[in-house]
Simulated scan of single mutants.
Amino acid sequence: MSLFRYTRAGQEPGAPRRHSPLLWIGLIAFIAGLLILAFAWLAGWLGRDRATAQSFTDTIEATGARHPGFRRAHSKGVCVTGTFQGLPAGAELSSARVFRQQQVPVLGRMSIGGADPHGADANARVRSMALQLVTDDGQEWRTAMNSFPFFAVPTADAFLEQTKAQIPDPATGKPDPAKMAAVAAKYPSVRAFGEWAKSAPWSTSWANTDYNGVNSFRFTNAAGKEQVVRWSMRPQAAFEAMSAEQRAQAGLDYLADEFQQRLTQGPVQWEMWVTLAEPSDAINDPSIPWPAERRQVKVGTLSLTAMQPQASGACRDINFDPLILPSGIDGTDDPILAARSAVYSVSFNRRERETASGAAKATGEAK
């Protein structure tokens, strides 16, 4: 019997088939249930063993003392402002307006690694630069870079493992060495990162530090040609190594004080370079550096001209999400990139709620 000629009792042949209202109600309820489950999953309410943005942020918070109103990582820093001037070489690689506009205003943040907003600048192994560039057509490019040349772990789950291992043991107040050693034994990149941290010289200033965007991104030019890149900011100021004696004698806000002094003498500048990937390069694993012989292209110059305290500066309430990108620049499938974006969002929302609720003021904290 043809399905198209099947009729129910009381229904004329050829008439549209009518479904029971209960069927539609059940279908709507089923779809609504799926949406609720999906929302709960993404929110971290289900599957607590998986690396959600919420569980990740909880783990980061557990590694040290709580400081309401501050960023969960790179808590101590200053706001900076300046400009970016793109070069034709950048415009050949990407259609992003930032490489064509004569001068793009920049709002940024210089910071140190760690979650202590009152820590000593000179004792921070990692220094960081975060930027927001807004072009005259309203498009934004936000990027967060660090002084290390590669990431310590290859995936978000590995990053969560590493962070959990850094949670202090209640009995000692320090991370368990056995847990730290287990993570290092499991991931060769953790051991390599540790060697970098021990052997690489410390710079004496934010101004003479290289900042690397260790994640991979995809540039697309006006002709539609794609090129995977990693970018970095290279200082025009000559590198100077910081001695152990200098670190011991440096003041609490050494980097901020030194940077402010430099700004009184004129703009502090970096050249922006992109490294072009080849087919054999690791695109989605930021723990693997690309070979030094890869082609590198200078695409612009960053000039910072002023500094403000982060408590009152314009950078205070900006989430430097690395996946806020203009047309002509796209993210890759790098899992660390996606994890950074998600955790930054959760951290931002938490500290904004703390500030709005007065929790930061109640503890005497300020951003």
Rank of each mutant, 00 (worst) to 15 (best):
R100P: 12
A62K: 05
R71V: 14
R71I: 11
L107M: 08
H74A: 14
A62L: 07
F148A: 01
R71D: 15
Q103K: 11
D136A: 13
G77Y: 02
P105M: 11
E140P: 13
Q103V: 07
Q132Y: 00
R97A: 05
S95Q: 14
V78H: 01
A120G: 15
F99E: 08
R72E: 15
Q103S: 13
N146T: 14
A115Y: 05
A73I: 15
V134T: 12
T63I: 03
R125H: 04
D137I: 13
A115G: 15
A152H: 03
A53P: 13
A73Y: 12
E61L: 09
G108V: 09
D137R: 01
D137Y: 03
N123W: 05
A124D: 09
K76G: 07
E92V: 04
A144E: 13
A152Y: 07
V98H: 11
P149V: 05
F56D: 11
A152W: 01
G113D: 15
R71E: 15
L131D: 10
F99W: 05
S147A: 03
T52C: 08
A89K: 00
G113Y: 04
T63W: 00
G82H: 01
E61Q: 12
N146R: 05
W141K: 01
D136K: 05
V134I: 11
R100Q: 13
D121N: 11
G86N: 04
G138W: 02
A91M: 02
T83Q: 04
H67K: 08
H67Y: 06
D116H: 02
V98E: 10
A130K: 00
R127A: 09
G138P: 11
V80F: 02
F56P: 12
T52N: 04
T143E: 14
S147V: 10
L131I: 10
R100N: 08
G113N: 12
A144F: 02
A91I: 00
V80P: 08
D58P: 06
Q103D: 14
A144C: 08
H67C: 02
I112C: 08
N146G: 14
G86Q: 00
A53K: 03
F84G: 03
A124E: 10
A96L: 05
R125F: 00
Q85F: 05
Q101A: 04
G108Q: 13
A73D: 15
S128H: 04
A115I: 06
Q103I: 11
A115K: 08
G113T: 15
E140D: 14
L133H: 03
N123Y: 06
G90A: 00
S111C: 11
A91Y: 00
R142F: 03
G86F: 00
F151W: 01
G138K: 04
D58F: 01
V126G: 04
N123P: 13
Q103T: 14
A122N: 13
R142Y: 07
